[in-house]
Amino acid sequence: MNHFARALLRPLIGAALLVAGTAAVAADQIPVVASFSILGDLVRVVGGDGVAVTSLVGPDEDAHVFEPKPADARSLVHGRLLVTNGLGFEPWAQKLVKSTGYKGQAVVASQGVKARTMPGEKGQKETDPHAWQDPGNVVLYVRNIAAALARLDPAGAATYQGNSEAYVKELQALDTWAQEQLSAIPAAKRKVITSHDAFGYFGKRYQVSFLAPQGISTEAEPSAKEVAQLIRQIQREKIKAVFFENMSSPKLLAQLAKDAGVTPGPALYVDALSKADGPAGSYLQLMRHNVMQLVAGIRQN
């Protein structure tokens, strides 16, 4: 959070304690704050009518570079449960908790996930936070969310459990379908270029090789040498599957695609949902959209 954002937050934190939250919450609903839109969708599925959900980072927004606003402070102060991804995805979340004096409960949705690590700057390993790109991990997410809601509302525990297990079946069906779609394409063709390195869990699950000019975070800027190496690899291996992401600036990848002589495909949805009326208004829609676009792209390799 920059100095300007901190200065803006401080005077409004006290006022946030005295005014109503921005979202209308029924008396029998639990106000839940999710760190970003994908988690918000999962909370709505598990909580059903028993929750009123606010997502701090909304559709088509980038959680990597997010800076909380006064409205976010108000939402958090009035929340009873904060749901975060963890794995280093939201470094700003704990700062927001501290600066608002949030007293509610919290759950890290990724608890229990076997995290991937990747080489980072100066040879140090970085944790890959994008665990939701594997539906098997999302099974853990929804069960963790159900357990957290049950602790807050024991009377609704059976409902949350039932909702989560019904959703687990949908996740398992999604996973089976994705496996079928991608395994039908020869492994040698399964190579994709994306804006930043966010598909590691997806790639491992479905045996797809992803390459990106940016690292795990969209804040990382690749060097000219790294971009040149990637262009040579695209040309050498004749990779045609090149995709932007909905929450990233397309400028870098557009220039890379132009220099490599390839045409980018439609946007993929990685760290954020689309608007409700878009192609990725829910997590299940996001995954189906991405799989279909990736299959169409890698068939051209």
Rank of each mutant, 00 (worst) to 15 (best):
I38L: 08
G101I: 07
E170F: 03
A71L: 04
G112P: 03
I38T: 12
V19D: 03
D62I: 10
A220D: 15
H130T: 01
V32P: 09
E61P: 09
R143L: 08
S35E: 10
K122W: 03
V33A: 09
I298Y: 00
V227F: 07
S183P: 15
M247S: 14
P68I: 02
P68D: 05
D197N: 10
A188P: 15
K69M: 04
G261D: 05
A109C: 08
E165G: 09
Q255V: 08
A63I: 14
K240P: 04
R80T: 11
L252I: 11
A178K: 07
N163L: 02
G297H: 02
T218L: 09
M118F: 07
Q233A: 05
L96F: 04
G14P: 06
N163E: 14
A27K: 13
T100H: 07
P266S: 05
V142M: 12
G120C: 01
S35F: 00
Y102H: 12
D60S: 13
V139R: 10
H130A: 01
S223R: 13
A188S: 14
L96D: 12
Q235S: 03
L230H: 09
L294I: 15
S282Y: 08
G58W: 04
W92K: 02
G203I: 04
F89G: 09
G136C: 01
N290P: 10
D49S: 10
V192K: 08
E170T: 07
K169I: 11
G281R: 09
Y160T: 01
D128F: 01
D134R: 01
P119T: 15
L149H: 00
S99H: 04
Q233V: 06
